[in-house]
Simulated scan of single mutants.
Amino acid sequence: MQQLGMGQAINQGLREEMERDAAVFLAGEGVGVGIHASPLLPTAGLLDTFGPKRVRDTPVSEAAIAGLAVGAAEAGLRPVVEIMFAPFLTLASDMIVNHAAKLRYLSGGKSSFPLVVRVKAGAGFGAGCQHSHNLEAWLAHCPGLKVVMPSTPADAKGLLKSAIRDPNPVVILEDMLLYFQFGPVPEGEHLVPIGPAEIKRPGRDVTVVAWSKMVGVALRAADRLAADGIEAEVVDLRTLAPLDTATILASVRRTGRLVVVHEANRTGGFGGEIAAVVMEEALDSLKAPLRRVCGPDIPVPASPPLEQWYIPNEDRVIAAVRELL
């Protein structure tokens, strides 16, 4: 078992898929040079290996990058394009939402549109609100898109490889702070199916549902709660669309309590969807009202102390759990 940072794991997955399938190519702002010079980042060294025909630096135009992906997928290629920051999805949304997500449906299922949009996401690096707004709920709201948010290097690699092979458009949101967090990654062929959630830690007293960077927060909170005899079950969604409601509901029915943790702001956040599913399907199992631990309804601050206040932490998860108990 190799130890890799998430950025390295993504890089390895890209290399393997590009070697396996000549139709796979990369495009985006700086994917070949410059900002990706660090060996810990996802596209480091790929230009040297595969050349400028398959690793293409683009103009600074998210709309053009997304349009390139849609056209290339329609022509029979398997593009993997990068949007540098999640808020810049707003500039690419016409091509992603109105074209990529709908073309297979409009073809009556006769055509496939295998494209992957990799998006750098997450707060915590002091870049301000225009680079840090989490928009996963917007994407999950769009029928026709699959939406993935890994929390570990192994999941990042396995989900990416599955996404590249999928005949549908897949958006992968990668929290940038996780690029530098190391974890075990299986050697050789490693695929993680798009859809199923995973119980990262079993527990009997409360279910904590999280995704991306917040899974680590939930696991650390669970370790501290365990010292006081409280066993929290941590469910990592991994995929937001399609949503694995079966795993969520089964966990809540076992524990009788639910805390949902996400970094995006509260109003309209994806945690509300999970809350609605549980209320509709497992209300009789709840021993207490569920809780959401989320970012506040403000733009992400650029000030480092204020930004850390914005991001949910272990103390807030622990407080929410204790309220339920």
Rank of each mutant, 00 (worst) to 15 (best):
K146P: 08
V147H: 03
M149Q: 10
P150M: 05
T152V: 00
T152R: 08
A154Y: 07
A154W: 11
A156Y: 10
A156I: 06
A156P: 12
K157L: 04
G158T: 01
L159G: 05
L160R: 07
K161H: 03
K161T: 07
A163T: 00
A163K: 05
A163R: 04
I164T: 03
R165A: 15
D166Q: 04
I172L: 15
I172N: 08
E174N: 12
E174R: 12
M176Q: 14
M176S: 13
M176R: 15
M176V: 15
L177Y: 01
L178W: 06
Y179C: 11
F180Q: 08
Q181M: 09
Q181R: 15
Q181S: 06
Q181C: 07
G183M: 09
P186C: 09
I194Y: 10
I199D: 07
I199N: 05
K200C: 10
K200Q: 13
G203P: 15
R204Y: 01
R204W: 01
D205A: 02
D205I: 00
V206C: 10
T207F: 06
V208H: 05
V209A: 14
V209R: 02
V209T: 07
A210D: 11
A210S: 13
W211D: 02
G216W: 11
G216F: 02
V217E: 09
A222P: 09
A222F: 02
R224P: 04
R224K: 14
A226H: 10
D228K: 04
G229Q: 12
G229W: 01
I230V: 15
E233Q: 13
V234Y: 02
L237N: 14
R238I: 08
T239L: 13
L240H: 12
L240F: 12
P242H: 11
L243V: 07
D244E: 09
D244A: 11
A246F: 12
T247S: 15
T247K: 15
T247A: 15
I248T: 13
L249N: 10
A250Y: 11
S251A: 06
S251N: 07
S251P: 09
T255N: 04
T255P: 08
T255E: 05
G256A: 02
R257Q: 00
L258N: 10
V260C: 12
E263L: 00
A264H: 04
A264M: 02
A264C: 05
A264Q: 09
N265A: 08
N265E: 03
